[in-house]
Computed example of a mutant assay.
Amino acid sequence: MMSPTAIIVVGASAGGVEALRRIVSVLPGDLNSAILITLHIGAHRSDLPWLLSRAGSLPATHPLDGEKICAGHIYVAPPDHHMLVETGYIRLTKGPRENWARPAIDPLFRSAARAYGTSVVGVILTGGLNDGTAGMFEVKARGGTTVVQDPSDSVTPNMPQSVIDHVIVDYVVPVKDIGSLLTSLVADHHATLPVNVPQTGDSQEKGMTAEFTLNHPVAVTCPDCGGALRQSELGTLTQFSCHIGHVYTAEVMLAAQFLTMERALETAMRSLSERAELCRHMSSKLPDSVASAHEREQWENARTQALDLTEPLRELLAKAWIHPVPVHSGARGDN
């Protein structure tokens, strides 16, 4: 199999399976490009390669670590692994989650942009929150082409809209037109991409550690590991990363903090309920006598106190919390 003349990287989340099937259904079998896809599937088993192979004329697989990148093939990030691009090869890693996800979109886009620069076409499809925005920023900054599914055509518009808000996008099109657009972009790109021997170690993760030491620390800890965070800016996008390598945008960080707080409140409520039950049990065991009346009263008072304190926690859990929504900046390109 020959080397591709272009690298297409695609990121999708909620609603992405059907969007991907529609795109690959119109791609020609002789497409002189490799397509690398990250869909937010977590650690769950994925049938996406099988679905995409049946949908179109290009074969799709979960790649192996160190597998050569070949034209006319679709590579799908396997469950619970980030898929990275080295020059000519694919790297798989169980590195730290980014934006609460593994596999995540940003590592794929970022590594492809650094390896192939102007030969990369980045595509962001339907999905929630904003994984993929930072990666698309890297694609654009290194001269690649940026394509976004029209938010009005998306099942969940947050991911494509975030890219439009923070990156100058080359093409914003409905999913029915993305396949033909990619075919045209690849046909216009004629340079053959280089192929190198895979290197030992993970240069992408080493670069991440170096960037962490240069950025400013903030008084916020990582929701995943509790480690110190440092803040970095990619254009108008703010990111936070810890020394282990967990990476969050501000919006995903807010969601992760909320989940951590919610779990803490639920733990406190459970502990108070268990305390109340223990007090009830101990009170019921005391004999019905004057001598034990004072002790029974103490157990009942402790039970009442525990039950009373669960109410403010219940109110906090039920509260309608404010989740800031980014103001659309209109950073869309003219194309």
Rank of each mutant, 00 (worst) to 15 (best):
P174C: 00
F258Q: 15
I124R: 10
R280C: 04
F109P: 12
W299Y: 15
V197G: 00
I41K: 08
M2T: 13
G117L: 13
V220D: 00
V139K: 03
V167C: 01
M261H: 12
H294A: 13
P78F: 11
E295R: 11
S180A: 10
V197I: 14
S184F: 09
A113K: 11
E274Y: 06
D334L: 06
M261W: 12
N32T: 05
A302H: 03
M282L: 12
G127M: 11
Y116N: 05
V167N: 01
H62M: 06
V186T: 12
D106M: 03
A6I: 06
V163S: 02
V197W: 14
I164L: 13
E295G: 01
A250T: 04
P4Q: 12
L185H: 13
L84A: 02
F109R: 05
H190R: 10
G132W: 09
L234I: 03
N335Q: 02
H246M: 07
A43P: 14
T5P: 03
V175G: 06
P194W: 03
E297P: 00
I23M: 11
P324Q: 08
V26Q: 06
E67Y: 14
H294S: 11
P217T: 03
P4L: 10
P157E: 05
T310E: 14
G144P: 07
P151R: 05
V121C: 15
L27G: 03
P287F: 02
S241C: 04
Q239K: 13
T192I: 15
L272N: 10
S152Y: 10
L259I: 11
G207T: 13
G88M: 03
T126Y: 09
T156H: 10
E277A: 15
D106N: 10
G72P: 09
S53W: 10
L129A: 04
A112Q: 11
M159T: 08
E138R: 01
L265V: 14
G235S: 04
H190E: 13
V186D: 09
G226D: 07
V10G: 04
M2D: 14
V147A: 03
L214G: 00
A219R: 05
R45Y: 11
T260A: 14
F212A: 00
A191H: 13
G95T: 08
M282S: 04
T238V: 14
M1Q: 12
C70G: 01
L20F: 02
T38V: 15
A276M: 11
V175P: 15
I37D: 14
G56Q: 08
H246Q: 07
H281D: 10
S271L: 09
S162K: 07
H294Y: 05
Q149K: 05
V123T: 12
T236S: 08
A77P: 13
A318M: 03
V121G: 12
A134F: 03
D224C: 07
V186Y: 12
W299T: 01
C70Q: 13
A255N: 12
M83P: 06
T221I: 09
H62T: 04
G201W: 11
M208E: 14
M1N: 12
N130L: 15
L58Q: 10
A306C: 01
